[in-house]
Amino acid sequence: MAALSDLRLLRNFVLVAEAQSLALAAVRANVSQPALSKQMAALEAELGVRLLDRHARGVRLTEAGDALRAHAGALLRDADRVVAEIGAAASHISGEVALGVVSSLRGFLVAPAVASFVRLHPGVTVRVLEGTSRAMREAVADGRADLAVIATREEASPFALRPFATEKLLAIAPPEARLRLDQPTTLEEVGRHNLVLAAAPNSIRTILDAALSRRGTRAVVRVEVENAATAMDLVRLGVGWSVFTFAAAARRLAEREVSAAPIGSLTIGWALATARERRASAAAAALADAVEQVALGRIRDGHWATARSLSGVAAETHGRDS
Rank of each mutant, 00 (worst) to 15 (best):
A88T: 14
F159D: 01
A261T: 00
P122I: 04
T206L: 13
S213A: 15
A135G: 15
P262C: 11
V83I: 15
R81Y: 10
L170I: 02
S311E: 12
R278G: 10
E46L: 04
A160Y: 00
R279C: 04
L147Y: 04
P175N: 06
K38Q: 12
F13I: 02
S203N: 12
F244S: 13
E189S: 10
L195D: 05
T306P: 02
E18A: 10
E46S: 15
A248C: 06
V114T: 12
T186E: 13
L161F: 08
L4H: 02
G58A: 04
V14S: 12
R218S: 15
L120E: 15
A254H: 10
R119Q: 15
A145T: 07
A199D: 09
T185L: 03
W241E: 08
T62K: 05
V223P: 02
A79L: 06
T125R: 11
A228N: 06
P174L: 07
S91G: 14
T152F: 01
A200K: 14
P163C: 00
R127L: 12
T306W: 09
A135K: 10
S157T: 11
V126N: 10
L43G: 07
F164Q: 05
Q20W: 05
V126H: 12
N30G: 10
A67S: 14
T62I: 10
A74N: 11
A64D: 14
G240R: 08
S116H: 08
